[in-house]
Structure formats: C-alpha cells, structure tokens
C-alpha cells in the first residue's frame, strides 16, 4: 500500500455548546479527501450550519480538532499562533452562504477581487484578470460592473461563488446556497456547483438539492441532534438506508 495522504478536511470530536448549555454538536468527526464532494443532510436545527461554520472558525468549536490542508487547530489553543492558523484555514477555505452576503457597495468584479487584493496582496491587474476568468466561468461576464442589488438571487450567488474561488481555495463550504432562491433560479447555481465538483474541488455542502446530493455527491451524511446518524454513498442512503431516522428524514424531503 502506498503512503496514505492526509485528508483535506478532518474534524475530530467537535463539540459546540452555545451559551451555558445548548449542546448543539456532540463529538462530530469527519474526514473529507481531496476532490471529494460531501453533502450533509439533516432536519432543521440539527446542527449542520454550526458544524460547517466550525470548520472555518466562524463558530468556535467548544472542543475538538479541526484540520484543513495540514493546518491543525485544537479548540483549546490560545494565542497568536492560533489566530494565524485560523486565518490560514480561512485562506484555504471558500464559503458560500444562504444569504449570499455579497458586499453591496462593490460591483460584482470588485467583490471578486477584494479578497485577492486585501487578503493576499495580489496586484490589481492580475486580480482583475483572474476575476474576469471566474465571471466567465459562472456565466456572468456581462454583469461585471453591476452592483449586487441589480442582480437576481441566482446571479448574486454565482458571483458569491466566484468570489470564494478567487483565492483559489482548497475546500469549498456551501451552507444551503439555493434555499433563498426562487425555484427557477436554483438550477443555475447547482449547475455551477456541479461543474466545480467535476473540476475536482473538495466540497462540503449542506443542501437539500436532491439532484446534487444524488448525482454529484460522492458521499451523503445525515446529521441529527448534533451528530451523524448515518453516512454512505448516495445510492445507499437514498435507496437503502440503515437507520429509521434517515428514512423518516428522507420521507420528509423527498
């Protein structure tokens, strides 16, 4: 057997307690390999978003270890090195939100070049060149100089994806990227995500978009009450789940 490569994302025993005792995540583990697409499913309030946000430290895990592309952070760690590690992980991780969260005072292009210029100190010319490539890739070349308020939800989310890709991330996190969209706009966003998966991006997505979960994901993981109940290939999860809870949940969304 060859040398085992480290997984791109590895979370070990993640706990998250909000306030004094709201135990939202209880010992979650995950390993996602390079190029893998993982879809997380689960009922509302089960902790999917919280878990996703723990990976790039938008939420601080109360306990556990996060590892992204060989940067390791223990929840208990303090000090300067930790801050650097968090920034390090964020630089390698793109994230797309349900509400898009584009910067409203910047055009589509400015949104995309903001990270490369401010965070990575890239030269503006170079940043613009790559941003235009990305805009083309998400099919929005003609919206280059439009402000977000003039874009449809689907277009905004595609710009947001381009924005996250501008820093050439190793991992993409999606938190229900299509659930704020009108049904007819979902397709264009899922299409972009699908192409991203095909190009070999490592993806962890919370999405109830069945086509994506069934046909694009390599693995589907079901969360309930702050931990996994079951995981497996889409065929296995959708056709022959082991757990009653999974069955209930799928009956609910199918």
């Amino acid at each position: 057997m060859g040398k085992k490569t480290n997984p791109m994302v590895k979370a070990t025993n993640i706990h998250k307690v909000f306030g004094k005792g709201l135990h939202v995540l209880s010992g979650v583990d995950i390993e996602v390999n390079k190029g893998e697409t993982v879809v997380i499913l689960g009922a509302s309030g089960s902790g999917k978003s919280t878990f996703l946000r723990c990976i790039n430290f938008l939420e601080e895990p109360t306990a556990g270890t996060i590892e992204v592309d060989n940067i390791v952070i223990n929840a208990g760690e303090r000090g300067k090195q930790r801050t650097e590690h968090i920034l390090g992980i964020r630089k390698k991780t793109g994230m797309c939100f349900q509400a898009f969260n584009l910067f409203p005072h910047m055009t589509a292009l400015e949104n995309i070049i903001e990270g490369p210029i401010t965070v990575f100190g890239q030269e503006k010319k170079e940043a613009i060149r790559y941003a235009e490539e990305l805009l083309d890739w998400v099919g929005l070349t003609e919206k280059r100089d439009e402000y977000p308020s003039r874009l449809s939800g689907g277009q905004q989310q595609r710009v947001a994806i381009a924005r996250s890709l501008a820093k050439k991330p190793k991992v993409m996190l999606f938190d229900e990227p299509t659930s704020a969209l009108d049904p007819e706009l979902v397709g264009e966003v899922v299409d972009v995500m699908e192409r991203l998966a095909e190009e070999g991006m490592t993806i962890i997505a919370v999405t109830h978009e069945l086509h994506f979960a069934r046909d694009v994901a390599d693995r589907v993981m079901i969360m309930d009450g702050g931990n996994w109940v079951e995981e497996g290939t889409p065929e296995k999860i959708f056709n022959n789940p082991d757990h009653e809870r999974t069955r209930q949940f799928l009956a609910h969304i199918l």
Binding site: L58, L87, K91, M95, F97, N101, F103, G115, T118, V119
Partner: peptide, 26 residues
Amino acid sequence: NIGQTEAAKAMGMTGFQTMKRVIFPQ
C-alpha cells in the same frame, strides 16, 4: 448585517481589514 462580517472573515480578512473595507464604507 452580521452576514457582511462573516463573509469578510470567511474570506480571510483580519478584524481591521473587515472594518476598513467592508463595514465602514457601508
């Protein structure tokens, strides 16, 4: 909106950069 800060942080911005580039101009 808090989402603006989160987007900036997720991008890898420091607190100062977030304030200067994202929050304050708005």
